[in-house]
Simulated scan of single mutants.
Amino acid sequence: MRRITPLQLDRVTRAVGRGDADERAARARVAALSTIEHPGVCVPLDVVREDDAVVVCSPRVAGTPLAEAGRTADLGAWVWLVAGLAEALAALHARGLAHGDVAPGNVVVGTRPVLVDLVGPALGRERGTPGFAAPERAAGGAPSAPGDVHALGAVALAAAGPELRTEAEAWMAPLLDPDPDVRPSAGAVGRGILGCAAPVRWRPAAATDGSAVAPAARTVTDPRAWHWRLRRRPLRLVAVAALAVGAAGWAVWGPPLGEPTSSAGAERAVPAAASSLPDPGAAARALTGERVDAVAAGDGEALVALTVPGSAAWATAAREARLLEDVELRGLTVGVGPATIVETGGGTAVVEVAYGLSAHVRAGPGGARTEVPAERQEVRLALEWSGERWRVVEVSAAP
Rank of each mutant, 00 (worst) to 15 (best):
G100I: 13
G100S: 13
V102Q: 04
A103Q: 06
N106T: 14
V107W: 00
V108G: 04
G110C: 11
T111Y: 05
V114C: 13
L115C: 09
V116C: 04
D117I: 12
D117K: 07
D117A: 13
L118H: 07
G120I: 00
P121G: 10
P121A: 08
G124N: 02
R125S: 14
E126K: 07
R127L: 12
R127G: 01
G128N: 02
G131C: 07
A133H: 00
A134Y: 02
A138F: 03
A139E: 06
G141A: 05
A142P: 10
A145C: 00
P146W: 03
P146D: 02
P146V: 05
G147F: 05
G147A: 07
H150W: 15
L152N: 02
L152T: 00
A154Y: 01
L157M: 09
L157Y: 00
A158H: 06
A159L: 03
G161F: 11
P162C: 11
P162K: 06
R165N: 03
T166G: 11
E167F: 06
E169I: 15
E169T: 15
A170F: 11
W171T: 12
W171M: 12
M172T: 15
A173R: 15
P174F: 11
L175R: 07
D177F: 09
P178C: 09
P178Y: 11
P178R: 05
P180K: 08
D181C: 05
V182M: 02
R183A: 08
P184D: 04
P184V: 12
S185W: 08
G187F: 08
V189Q: 02
V189P: 02
R191Q: 14
I193G: 04
G195E: 14
P199Y: 11
R201S: 13
W202R: 02
W202Q: 01
W202A: 01
R203L: 13
R203N: 10
P204H: 10
A205G: 15
A206R: 15
A206L: 09
A207E: 05
S211Y: 08
V213W: 01
P215H: 09
V220C: 10
D222S: 12
D222I: 09
P223D: 10
R224L: 13
R224W: 11
